[in-house]
Simulated assay, not measured.
Amino acid sequence: MQQQNDHPYKTWIDLAAQRLGGQALQCSDDFFAEMENLLKPAAPVFIDDKYTDRGKWMDGWESRRKRVVGHDWCVIKLGAKGIIHGVNVCTRFFAGNAPQSVSIEGCVSEIAPNDSTEWQPILIQSNVNPDSDNYFGIESQEAFTHIRLNIFPDGGVARLRVYGEPVIDWDWFLPGEPIDLAYVKNGGRPMACSDMFFSNMENLIMPNRGKDMGDGWETKRRRGGRECDWIIVKLGAKGSIEKVLVDTAHFKGNYPESFTLEAACLEPHQSPDENTEWHEVIGREKLTADSEHFYRHNIQNKGQHFTHVRLNIFPDGGVSRLRVYGFLAEKEGE
């Protein structure tokens, strides 16, 4: 399977990721290998001499050979409701037992889908290659909570990745409640960074505290060149910045010496570039190892509205999480 940094949808979030709450709910058949394997975060593996009482052990979802008319399917609850831009139906190690083709449908439901659920096509029936990554672009602009992967007629799929942008129901929040505008489930998305040699930039805005040093954003040791490393995060919505959390959990010998935080206000669909005007939100502050760092009283430009933030770390190192709390511009009469 390709490294996460190499796939064509690397700037989007895997909406079906287990750490967001993605879950395989039900399937037509998983006789040889359980449906839960589809959403495992790790790349699939193959163990040559491993068997179960049902046959060859496979690291994926695999149905038995279908001897009746029809096809197999699996229903996935997305970890975050969102607009899907691309998928990877990975058939790695399913060389002689991959499906011939697949399709994907979606729905919006507050409960687990059932026989009365109305499904909408997302990906028309398309051929897949065995033992391969199979990437498909998705053109729908609708947001979905669940998808159904159909495989024709049967076979095995190692992993399913569903890349897109979370769409939050802002009515869930109470009037005047501060919101983490950078949080992945609130629509935050990393746009670019100077380096992510050791771990992916999307970790910075994931749920909970990092579970280990690999669950954060970490750059390689900088040997000259640029003054600092940086990451740009698109906020889930335009809003003010009232308090900030920078967490260096598990980074003990490789945390940044210090950081600054800047913000910009861009038009919809506009991306930051060399001409973007950045405003200082937090001046240069020291960081310590394996700690949460809270900032409220020293926030600059409070009340001003922003769409993007840029975290600069000096000179390099690792940060586990970034939280940017503020108020929605729309709720303030803008």
Score class of each variant (00 low, 15 high):
Phe32Ser: 00
Phe32Met: 06
Ala33Cys: 07
Ala33Ile: 07
Ala33Met: 08
Ala33Asp: 06
Glu34Trp: 01
Glu36Cys: 05
Asn37Ser: 14
Leu38Lys: 08
Lys40His: 11
Ala42Asp: 15
Pro44Gly: 08
Val45Gly: 03
Phe46Gly: 01
Phe46Pro: 00
Phe46Cys: 06
Asp48Cys: 05
Thr52Trp: 04
Asp53Val: 11
Gly55Glu: 03
Lys56Arg: 14
Trp57Thr: 03
Trp57Ile: 00
Trp57Leu: 08
Trp57Asn: 02
Met58Leu: 13
Asp59Arg: 07
Asp59Thr: 12
Glu62Trp: 01
Glu62Asp: 09
Ser63Cys: 05
Ser63Asp: 04
Arg64Leu: 00
Arg64Asn: 09
Arg64Gly: 13
Arg65Leu: 07
Arg65Glu: 09
Arg65Gln: 03
Lys66Gly: 03
Lys66Met: 15
Arg67Leu: 11
Arg67Trp: 02
Val68Lys: 14
Val69Ala: 13
Gly70Arg: 12
His71Cys: 14
Leu78Gln: 14
Gly79Phe: 09
Lys81Gly: 14
Lys81Gln: 15
Ile84Tyr: 06
His85Glu: 08
His85Ile: 03
His85Asp: 01
Gly86His: 06
Val87Ala: 00
Val89Glu: 04
Phe93Leu: 10
Phe94His: 01
Asn97Arg: 08
Ala98Ile: 05
Ala98Tyr: 05
Pro99Lys: 04
Pro99Phe: 07
Ser101Ala: 15
Ser101Lys: 04
Val102Ser: 01
Val102Arg: 00
Ile104Val: 11
Glu105Thr: 09
Gly106Arg: 01
Gly106Cys: 03
Gly106His: 03
Cys107Asn: 08
Val108Glu: 14
Val108Asn: 10
Glu110Pro: 03
Ile111Thr: 14
Asn114Gln: 11
Asp115Cys: 04
Asp115Val: 11
Ser116His: 06
Ser116Met: 09
Gln120Val: 12
Ile122Asn: 00
Leu123Met: 09
Ser126Gly: 00
Asn127Tyr: 07
Val128His: 00
Asn129Cys: 06
Asn129Trp: 07
Pro130Arg: 08
Pro130Asn: 09
Pro130Ile: 05
Asp131Gly: 12
Asp131Leu: 10
Ser132Ile: 00
Asp133Thr: 09
Tyr135Gln: 03
Phe136His: 12
Phe136Cys: 02
Gly137Pro: 00
Ile138Glu: 09
Ile138Val: 15
Ile138Trp: 04
Ile138Pro: 00
Gln141Asn: 15
Ala143His: 12
Phe144Asn: 07
Thr145Tyr: 13
His146Glu: 10
Ile147Cys: 08
Leu149Tyr: 02
Asn150Cys: 11
Asn150Ser: 13
Ile151Val: 15
Phe152Glu: 12
Pro153Ala: 13
Asp154Asn: 10
Val157Ser: 08
Leu160Asn: 01
Arg161Trp: 03
Val162Ser: 07
Tyr163Glu: 08
Glu165Val: 15
Pro166Leu: 13
Val167His: 07
Asp169Pro: 15
Asp169Leu: 13
Asp171Lys: 14
Asp171Leu: 11
Trp172Phe: 14
Trp172Thr: 13
Trp172His: 12
Phe173Met: 06
Phe173Thr: 02
Pro178Tyr: 08
Asp180Tyr: 14
